[in-house]
Design a protein around this nucleic acid. Structure first.
Ligand code: MN
Ligand code: MN
Ligand code: MN
Ligand code: MN
Lengths: 160, 160
DNA sequence: CATTATTGTTTGCCAAGGCTAAACTATTTG
DNA sequence: CAAATAGTTTAGCCTTGGCAAACAATAATG
């Protein structure tokens, strides 16, 4: 196969993390499965959380607001609302503002809480506000309870 | 719009992180856009990184190995390989082991490096190895360079 | 070397999550 | 109160990323 394996072209500080051998197949598989599962609920959580936030801060949650805050077309939002309805997370009448069902409320609260912990942790670490918000928006869905607890503790310590 | 605003029903420790008002629309939109963009490349990166790791640690990367390590059907892998080929990331002949193109190598190296930084950071924070691996698999795709640098620094400090 | 086992590919199916264009409803305003 | 504007939904299209089943190639084995 010739010569190459260009591989280690970093003179980085990490001691060539390929020092980590491949994990056993089943464990490795569980990693990817967990990520796939997270991706199934991610969008739903973001919608529900946003709807909850709009209700809290604005008093109402309209499809147009969701569309502009998510940078997505109104058609996309409308379709998603239908799904959230079917899932029993929102209650909506055509052409009117949205509301969350109790289940939706619960999900919104849980998501908001988790999101906040991750965001505050990043801030405590020293990440700038804008970046912290961007990173938290994605990271929040991939943080286990174990890690979340550690983040919370770290943030509390830091706040002395 | 009637009466309700069911809102705040948590007695949580976080000082009601809704103390964070909604960010300006454009900034908020950029958060979600960044996440959507990450999700477009995520899977590709995971495949390429895994292929690179298999080549490094096993000397060859076969579709069957990828399928079992990702807990996905061989059909799915086969289809994905075709895409990676079209993207110029892998070079493959039917029924033979895979190889990475230079572009693929570069992506594999970059992904592995970033993945390693996140993983080691979580370990340094005190997260258990298994959990750290699971969380890192998802988080790695949502961590900005700014945050990455801070994680790296934290890990180095911790290692004294 | 013939058979069986393993591995890889193709095909056809599905759901999610985007989009645009067009139709419909509600609200505002002249 | 009619028309214009703003908001919402529907229809139809596309790409991704999954699957199972049938088929093809290669490898292993008696
Ligand atoms: Mn999010
Ligand atoms: Mn993600
Ligand atoms: Mn990775
Ligand atoms: Mn990953």
């Amino acid at each position: 196969m010739s010569h190459s394996i260009p591989s280690s072209q970093q003179a980085s500080k990490t001691p060539l993390q390929s020092g980590d051998a491949l994990p056993p197949v089943e464990q490795h598989a569980r990693q990817y499965e967990t990520v796939r599962n997270a991706h199934e609920t991610e969008l739903i959580e973001d919608y529900v959380e946003l709807i909850g936030d709009l209700l809290l801060h604005r008093g109402e949650a309209r499809a147009a607001d969701i569309a502009s805050r998510m940078a997505v077309s109104q058609a996309t939002v409308s379709k998603m609302i239908r799904r959230l309805n079917e899932l029993g997370l929102v209650k909506s009448q055509p052409y009117r503002s949205l509301f969350l069902t109790p289940e939706g409320q619960a999900m919104a609260n849980a998501s908001r809480e988790r999101h906040g912990i991750v965001l505050n942790f990043l801030r405590a670490l020293g990440v700038s506000d804008t970046t912290a918000r961007i990173d938290a928006e994605g990271m929040e869905h991939h943080v286990s309870d174990e890690t979340l607890a550690i983040m919370q503790r770290y943030t509390d310590e830091k706040a002395k």
